[in-house]
């Protein structure tokens, strides 16, 4: 962590051999290895989703249709298929772009540029996380937040996706119920996979914040390179990459 890291490391010191066989630093290669294994985890989860859908004829028949999974939008009760999820997708793409611009600025040793673009990436990450909170809360508590869930176990016993909401009056009470369709297993997959992705976004924002703090303090400038921005950048792009697949296999297909 000292300021003396402008010291040059020749390839034989770094690799024991004569040169880095892959022409990347140790840290970057390990980040790639991690991403491959993490990618296999998500690949396994999404393949399992496909297996569950196709393995049971009854489930296949009642599986919710992609476009109808989420049809709500803040401040309106209009039926707007896909629009909110499309918004979330754009947020993640844009934050991926700001990240790659931060990496590019780092290659030019442009500290101000890195701070600007990495800062915007963090903002994008927070907007995405907030959007997911709203999506989940709409699923669980209904579009008006008055859905009875634990009371009659609506969420646990039924799948709430693609269902329509209906206001029921029983005596003095008014509550919303989901007229749901589709197997519970679908909800399990939905919450687990989008939740696991959301957890990745959360840790990504955390990494970005930590690196941003170091950038502001000039740690990487003293070190002579901004490769740490590149490494967390790889992770952040991976999060965007996973969302591309989650978007397709939950909301489109």
């Amino acid at each position: 962590m000292a300021g003396a890291h402008t010291q040059q490391v020749d390839a034989s010191t770094a690799w024991g051999g004569k040169a880095s066989p892959f022409n990347v630093s140790y840290g970057k290669m390990m980040m790639w290895f991690f991403l491959v294994s993490d990618g296999l985890t998500f690949g396994g989860l999404l393949s399992a989703l496909g297996f569950a859908k196709f393995a049971n004829p009854e489930w296949a028949a009642s599986w919710p249709m992609g476009e109808e999974v989420f049809t709500h939008f803040p401040f309106t009760h209009a039926h707007l298929p896909l629009l909110y999820v499309a918004f979330m997708t754009f947020i993640l793409i844009v934050s991926s772009v700001t990240m790659v611009l931060a990496v590019e600025a780092g290659h030019r040793m442009d500290k101000r540029g890195v701070i600007k673009w990495l800062g915007l990436t963090v903002v994008g990450g927070f907007i995405f996380l907030g959007s997911q909170v709203w999506e989940w809360s709409t699923f669980i508590a209904g579009p008006d937040g008055d859905l009875s869930t634990w009371h009659d176990n609506t969420t646990l016993q039924h799948n709430c996706y693609g269902g329509t909401y209906e206001v029921i009056e029983d005596g003095h009470h008014k509550h919303t119920e989901i007229k749901s369709y589709g197997p519970t297993l679908y909800s399990n997959f939905f919450f687990f996979i989008t939740g696991f992705h959301g957890f990745h976004v959360f840790t990504g924002v955390l990494f970005n914040l930590l690196v941003l703090r170091n950038v502001v303090r000039g740690v990487y400038h003293r070190r002579g390179h901004y490769e740490m921005v590149e490494k967390v950048g790889l992770y952040w792009h991976f999060v965007d990459l996973v969302w591309v697949f989650v978007f397709t296999f939950f909301y489109l297909v």
Binding site: H5, V9, T13, S20, V24, S25, G27, H107, H225
Partner: peptide, 15 residues
């Protein structure tokens, strides 16, 4: 604490 056993190096990190 200063760790001088960790060397942060980079290859091709500039343009």
């Amino acid at each position: 604490l200063v760790r001088d056993d960790i060397v942060e190096y980079s290859l091709d990190a500039h343009h």
